[in-house]
Design a protein around this nucleic acid. Structure first.
Lengths: 358, 358
DNA sequence: AGAACATCTGAATCTGGCA
DNA sequence: TTGCCAGATTCAGATGTTC
């Protein structure tokens, strides 16, 4: 494969993460999700965190050789990922205490701007059999923008909606991937040691992308990221070096149907809603010239002029400017500060404005 | 001050962390708890939606020019701490995404052996006022042994007892330090910007030390670590460079009474652990160690231990077991059997527990 | 006295579009 | 790039005030 101009959209690419990423063009990716292997073994084999817990090999880590090799490997793929990300793109990286501190520090050194660390709290973690430590009941995700000035996407209202209408917190309680979702071979053994739950990717993708965005997973495994991306009408590119995983991933993708497009758009946020100027309310007679505006407790009032400026004593200007002036404040949201009287009760301008929205 | 041979036990030392640690002898400390500056990089004033100003951390001690400066500072104090720790000692370090990845990587580089990363889940975090990120609802603790071969202390049964008789997980749900526990100045403002809850230190110290062990806190602040260590009959050494904090710490220590020694020993590990959900009340100070419990008619009484077991005569165990034993009954609901005295009246534990529910 | 309501606050890397 | 300014944005819990 040689470098391509056009992105290979909705593909699982068989090959090494860094080598394959080198083929892709700069600034072409909207979001990266990466579940990197955590250790480099002597034969170049890559192991993942859960593997080490089961096998008990975590105690055998040779820190001097392996930390350096792991850091070099991490810098290589993170640098390539950063090149592929456009200015406002974000990246998610998941790991455990074995590797996440190194990954986080390297990301900061490369110029990524951490937005949150997010905890995946497992409802059903593997117990600690030897009773010598706390049950390892979580993994850590780092969510970062390409750079401090990125104007990154965050679907705040969608996350709030997903969480009973309160802000989504940095700790997510989600079960392990088990049961029918867990891919198995002919012998009923799990196909991949660390298959992530689709619920986790659902939240990641819904939080940080829009429909038709391109999500890259450089350690695709059995294509959980790609599968959820397809369901949510996002484009995906997966890279995986084990042919068996790629094959299983394609089979999984064939089974997945995308949800109807209108259901996968994030909950519209007020920030992104079309702006409605106060003048429109005046023009259309909802707040005719001469109307009296009051603050919530009727301590101050103002009069609406025909040009949608308002007048309070010596102050004249926008609803925001005059609201700030009468409070002696630096700034003010006039939409929520000012009210009009309707049937004897005060109603915020913000509420009046709602009647103009679809 | 010059180097000492004997440890200055149960003292708050006024001075710089690294300089003061240099005075102390090698391999003399059993456990370190460190809450270093987080290197927050706050760019401007932040206001709540109601336009009030958030009182952020703007202290000089949290100002570093860049990551390199922060790393150098971190390597210096972590190296000294490691020299002071004996072979089997452990260290706890708390931080947020701003600094914890750098700290974790440096700890690994210095030869510490990470045992767990532990998440402090805050029940009542400050929201994200701008709706641009996930609510920052947790902080991360790293628990590490001095070296891979350390035979470190972990009071497994005490942790299990504190957690409803199931293994203590790596995520701990504990509220912020507020209310009466929060130290304030004459004007009612918080004395220290980042005072940690005693419940957090209770769990840390109970998990990883024995009575009479020496706990070092190189960034002692208002002496939360020292205060909880005293309550649990551990020795402490606190280092703090701000005289006002040291003074407040001494005042706080004078108020604290150590619990009776036999109540602060961890639950014997061979013993069948009781089925309780009582530990949270002990940890949060609602039923502090040493509290006397009575039955409704004050015919029998028992004493609360730090690990939430209770003692009545020769009986020691859960509130349920001891309740059954003193009645010569097959079983007993300790929540309704045992009462504490409040303003001269007996209140059932079940009622005390209600205050922790929403 | 107690319920109902109002106010305050906590380790925070906290906006975006247009001229 | 910088400056201006419209306007979007909060949860749990403790404490204080009013009815």
């Amino acid at each position: 494969m040689t470098a391509v101009r056009e992105l290979p959209l909705d593909q699982l690419l068989l090959g090494d993460a860094v080598e394959m990423m080198r083929m892709l063009p700069d600034a072409s990716i909207d979001c990266v999700f990466a579940d990197p292997p955590y250790n480099l073994q002597l034969r170049g084999e890559l192991r993942r965190p859960d593997d080490s817990v089961v096998d008990g090999v975590d105690d055998d880590w040779d820190k001097f050789t392996d930390f350096a090799a792991y850091d070099e490997f991490s810098r290589a793929w993170l640098s390539e990922a950063r090149r592929l990300m456009h200015k406002d793109a974000t990246i998610w990286v998941i790991g455990s205490y074995h590797n996440i501190f190194r990954l986080g520090a390297i990301m900061q050194d490369l110029g990524f701007w951490i937005l949150n660390d997010v905890i995946w709290r497992k409802t059903n973690p593997m117990p600690n059999f030897r009773g010598r430590r706390f049950t390892n009941a979580h993994e850590t995700l780092i969510w970062a923008a390409r750079e401090p000035k990125s104007r990154y996407r965050f679907n705040y209202q969608a996350m709030k909606s997903l969480n009973d209408d309160t802000q989504m917190r940095s700790d997510w309680t989600i079960p392990l991937c088990t049961g029918g979702e867990r891919l198995r071979n002919q012998h009923g053994l799990k196909l991949h040691p660390t298959q992530k739950p689709e619920a986790l990717l659902h939240r990641v993708i819904l939080a940080a992308t829009n429909p038709d965005d391109v999500v890259l997973d450089p350690f695709s495994g059995t294509a959980t990221t790609a599968t959820v991306a397809k369901r949510l009408n996002r484009h995906f590119i997966g890279i995986e070096r084990h042919p068996a995983y790629v094959e299983a991933g394609w089979a999984r993708l064939r089974e997945m149907r995308a949800a109807p497009a209108h259901l996968t758009r994030p909950m519209p946020s007020r920030r992104e809603a079309p702006r409605i100027a106060f003048g429109v309310l005046v023009e259309r007679g909802l707040v005719p010239p001469g109307t009296l505006l009051h603050d919530r407790l009727r301590r101050v009032s103002a009069t609406v002029a025909a040009d949608a400026s308002i007048i309070a004593g010596a102050h004249r200007g926008s609803i925001h400017q005059v609201g700030a002036a009468v409070q002696n404040a630096a700034s003010c949201n006039g939409w929520t500060f000012w009210h009009i009287e309707r049937e004897g009760r005060l109603v915020a301008l913000d509420h009046v404005r709602e009647t103009l929205r679809p």
